[in-house]
Simulated assay, not measured.
Amino acid sequence: MNEYRDIAEQLRSRLDDLLQRAEVIEDDLRHPLDADWSEQAVDLADDEALEGVDEVLRSEIQQIRLALLRIKNGTYGKCAKCGDEIRRERLEARPIATRCIKCA
């Protein structure tokens, strides 16, 4: 874990940020629809866009949680496909990477 402590801290910070953003989006999606039909149409279109953003956030949240779990259990930095080491530079650029450059 010590080898990837800095990456783990970055991942935790990013996770906190994403969770806060997702909470704001969820709060916005819970709002009641306006009584005006034209306003409802705008609200529904906005909600659809927000749901797409929320889906992307949730996916990244899951990937970060899995990366933190790999750090914790000692499998972080090993390619999920070939088992070779994932270079540190790649992990710094893409901390959620599960494959080495060759397998990606």
Rank of each mutant, 00 (worst) to 15 (best):
E3P: 02
K72E: 15
A41Y: 07
R14E: 15
E89C: 05
V42G: 07
Q63A: 15
Q63F: 07
V42T: 14
C103Q: 12
L57P: 00
T75D: 09
R70N: 05
C82S: 11
D34L: 05
L68F: 04
T98R: 10
V56A: 13
L19N: 14
R21S: 06
Q20D: 11
R58P: 00
E89I: 08
E3G: 09
L11G: 02
L29E: 12
R99T: 09
L66A: 13
C100Y: 05
I96Q: 01
A41S: 12
I64C: 02
A45L: 12
R65I: 08
E60Y: 06
I61C: 13
E85H: 10
M1Q: 09
Y4V: 02
C79K: 03
D84W: 06
R99Y: 09
E89V: 11
P95K: 00
A35N: 14
I71G: 01
P32R: 15
D84L: 08
K81L: 14
V56P: 00
I71C: 04
K102M: 05
D27R: 15
C82M: 09
L69A: 10
E60I: 05
E9F: 09
Y76M: 04
D6G: 08
K102D: 12
Q63G: 07
E48Q: 09
R5H: 09
Q63R: 15
A93R: 08
G52V: 00
A49P: 00
D16C: 02
V42C: 07
E39Y: 02
L50I: 03
C100F: 07
L18R: 06
R90A: 01
P32V: 14
I96N: 00
K78H: 11
P32K: 15
G83I: 05
Y4E: 01
R21E: 12
D6W: 07
R70I: 01
G74P: 11
E48S: 11
R94V: 15
A22V: 04
A97M: 04
E9I: 07
S38P: 00
G77L: 05
K102N: 12
L57V: 00
V42H: 14
Q40L: 06
R87N: 13
D28G: 06
R88C: 02
L68E: 01
Y76W: 08
I96E: 03
D54H: 13
Q62R: 11
A67L: 03
D36M: 10
L18S: 05
E85P: 01
D27E: 14
D47C: 01
R14H: 12
R90C: 04
L18H: 06
D27S: 11
D28W: 03
Q62H: 04
D16W: 11
L66D: 14
E85W: 03
S38M: 07
E26D: 07
R58M: 08
E51A: 14
M1R: 11
L33F: 13
D16I: 07
E60N: 12
G52E: 02
I96L: 02
I7V: 12
V42K: 14
S59P: 00
E92S: 05
M1L: 10
R70T: 00
R65G: 11
D27I: 05
L57E: 08
L18G: 03
D27M: 13
P95W: 01
